[in-house]
Computed example of a mutant assay.
Amino acid sequence: MELKKIFGQHSAFILTCIAGAGVIATSISAAQGGMEVSELLAEARGGGEELTVKDKIAIATPVYFPAFMFGVATVTCIFGANAINKKQQASLLGAYTITKRSFEKYRQTLIEKHGIEADTEIRESIIARQHCDYHQIGLDVPDQKCIFIEPISGQVLKCYEREIMDAEYHLNRNFVLRGFVSLNEFLEFLGLPKTDRGAKTGWSIDSGFYWIDFEHRLLEDKKYLKHYTIEPVFPPDESYLEGWQ
């Protein structure tokens, strides 16, 4: 059951690896077969008789058969991986289309009931991240440095919001390209020291999401006064490497 789950989650990658191994095996088998066929043809000509094309084919076919089978298996794996990738892409596109249509329907209903002003106000509130007054829409000068807290490790840093967003972008880039990332990677992009917990926890696309969203929440306490937390919408977990190792 566990092997079936792993193959189901990474079938395209597994088939691609098998195809790569198949290319190597086909090349080796063909090279070895070529030398063996040369020797067999030389032995057959030792009797002094001229070999016909039919005779040469009869001698070479059994020798080249393994290379032929490796080649067929390799091509099958390549087409199989391509078919699985297309199926996954179609599923993602279908989910995106449904989500987009639902959102457009929601916006249209909102505009009909409350007017275009309400729609504009809500969208600007989302973009501005409610309660994050350090980021102003339409601001054409650099924003000020603020105190940020990474709540999982409890570490504090003072920087611009754009530096935090840059770290979030690079983390998600690795996430999309590789399929998983650790909390320590995020800490490293933030310029913070790695932690033991950061090495054990992280995010994986096997959890069902393909982008790690973050929220910057404005908080106040006696120690830091005005500061912002960097909170992932999807918290990291310790099982993020299952199926990847």
Rank of each mutant, 00 (worst) to 15 (best):
E168P: 03
L139V: 11
C159L: 06
N174M: 12
E188S: 14
L183F: 11
K194L: 08
R173W: 15
E220D: 11
V181R: 04
V233F: 07
L139K: 13
M165V: 12
D206Q: 11
I152Q: 05
L219K: 13
E117G: 00
Y96G: 09
R197T: 13
F186V: 01
S182A: 06
F148K: 00
P232E: 01
Y134W: 10
G202K: 02
E117H: 03
G198S: 06
E163K: 03
F214G: 04
E121F: 05
L192S: 05
K100V: 04
Q144H: 08
V181T: 04
I122P: 12
K200T: 15
D166Q: 13
K223W: 07
G179D: 02
V141R: 11
A90T: 11
K100Q: 12
I147E: 01
V233T: 12
T99W: 12
Q108G: 08
S182T: 14
F209Q: 04
T120P: 05
Q130R: 09
E104G: 03
D166V: 03
N172L: 04
S102H: 10
I152A: 08
K100E: 07
E150Y: 00
I137K: 09
D119L: 10
V233K: 07
V176A: 15
I212F: 07
T201M: 10
K222M: 13
Y96C: 12
G94P: 04
P151K: 03
K105P: 00
E117A: 10
L93V: 15
D119T: 03
S153N: 04
Y224N: 06
I205D: 13
R178D: 12
H135Q: 10
Y169E: 03
F180Y: 15
N172I: 02
